[in-house]
Structures are given as structure tokens and as C-alpha cells.
């Protein structure tokens, strides 16, 4: 899922300073699962903002909504009948959702209520960790299902660097060496021959280096 963290309330209040009538939009997608932008978070943030603004003597009206997904046009359209009645939209969906709202509602300012993080997994309740950088050229079949791009701090492709010690990465004691994980897993799978295969240079043009990416599925158009 796409993860994120709430923006500091002071930052949100500063963004909202010019407005007294806004829509606060959540999303039932990834940000609901990682507990940063779902229906409950909309309610908590709206209450917080109302309290803060009332205490400062400058009340704010907030319409609370939570869209099925902010990254799909049909759900965004459900906001169209009323969005122009408000001065701004504060979205606590991921960066993709916020931008899509901004594209669709061109005359209404869109404000981000969260900082979008990474593509990750729920390791345990309340703890998420990165697993994929969306490089566009997956090699998980060769690396025991562990991504060298994401799990190695340097995104190395041919084994650990000199900063790996006792299975720990030099960037942080809490970070396991991605290549140690890969080698351990390959040994367990009896696939160490994969480690010995010389891999060609990775083409990063399918990653961010090629600019904003697009997927077109002719069979679905």
C-alpha cells in the first residue's frame, strides 16, 4: 500500500489561515489501511481544526467527506456538486489522490494534509516498512523475493557493500543488510546459483529516471 504520515497540525493550520470554509477529504484506499487518511482520521482532524480555530477566535466550517478512492475519476466526481461552495479542499489522501483532485477541480485550491511516504507493508499494527520502489523492472525471481533496490540502502545489484557488518546495514543499526537477507534466503531456497549469475546493468529508464511514467493497457481501453 501507499503509506504516509500526518503533517504537523501547526503546518496545516498555517495552510488554512486564509480560509474559513473548506472540504476535508479522506480516502478509503491505502491511507485508511495505514491509518492516516481514512474516515476516522477525517473526523479527528476536522475536530482538531475546529477546536484550534475556535480557540483562536477564527471559526472554520469543514465539510467532512471520505471518497472510495481519490485516484479514480468516478469517485472524485461525487464531490463536484458542492466543491465550488468551499474555498479550499484539504485532502489527506496520498500525493496521487491530492494531485488528481487538483486536476479535476481547477478553480479550487488543494492542500495536502499528509506527507506521502512509500510503497510498504504492515509489519505489525502501527508499524509499516518499505518494500518496493516501483523501479519498473522486477528482479525478485533472482533475489529470493527480496528487493535489492529497496532493501539495500545503496540499491546494489551484485552483493553487499563494505558497510555490511554481521547482517546489519551501516546506515542504521535497526536496518538489516538487504544483501545478507537475499543471500540467507537464496541459501534456504537452494538457489545460490542465482547469486553467481552476472547481471547486466539495470536499466533505470523504467524507473523515475525516465520521467513521469504511464501505463497504457490497450486491452482495457
Amino acid at each position: 500500500m501507499i503509506t504516509g504520515t500526518p503533517k504537523p497540525i501547526e503546518e496545516i493550520l498555517q495552510m488554512l489561515e486564509p480560509y474559513d470554509n473548506i472540504v476535508l477529504a479522506g480516502c478509503f484506499g491505502c491511507v485508511t489501511v495505514c491509518r492516516v487518511g481514512g474516515e476516522k482520521e477525517v473526523e479527528v482532524l476536522a475536530s482538531t481544526l475546529r477546536l484550534a480555530r475556535e480557540a483562536s477566535g477564527k471559526k472554520i466550517t469543514i465539510k467532512e467527506v471520505c471518497l472510495e478512492r481519490q485516484c479514480d475519476p468516478e469517485y472524485i466526481e461525487t464531490m463536484r456538486p458542492y466543491v465550488e461552495d468551499y474555498q479550499a479542499v484539504l485532502s489527506i489522501a496520498c500525493g496521487a489522490g491530492i494531485q488528481f483532485l487538483a486536476e479535476k477541480f481547477t478553480t479550487t485550491p488543494l492542500l495536502p494534509g499528509i506527507n506521502t511516504g512509500f510503497l510498504g507493508v504492515t509489519e505489525r499494527q502501527g508499524e509499516w516498512a518499505e518494500r518496493c520502489q516501483g523501479c519498473g523492472d522486477c528482479v525478485l525471481h533472482l533475489t529470493g523475493g527480496i528487493c535489492p533496490v529497496t532493501r539495500c540502502a545503496k540499491s546494489l545489484f551484485h552483493g553487499p557493500c563494505g558497510g555490511s557488518a554481521k547482517g546489519i546495514c551501516e546506515v542504521d543499526k535497526s536496518v538489516p543488510c538487504g544483501w545478507q537477507l537475499i543471500i540467507d534466503r537464496l541459501k534456504a531456497l537452494n538457489q545460490m546459483d542465482n547469486y553467481c549469475k552476472l547481471k547486466p546493468y539495470k536499466g533505470w529508464n523504467s524507473s523515475r529516471d525516465g520521467g513521469p511514467r504511464r501505463i497504457v493497457r490497450e486491452d482495457m481501453i
Binding site: P8, I9, E10, L13, T48, L51, A52, A55, S56
Partner: peptide, 8 residues
């Protein structure tokens, strides 16, 4: 923490 940050 929220109440502290919003000066309530």
C-alpha cells in the same frame, strides 16, 4: 499531544 499543539 493534539490539545497541547492547538493551545487548548
Amino acid at each position: 499531544n493534539i490539545l497541547e499543539k492547538i493551545n487548548i
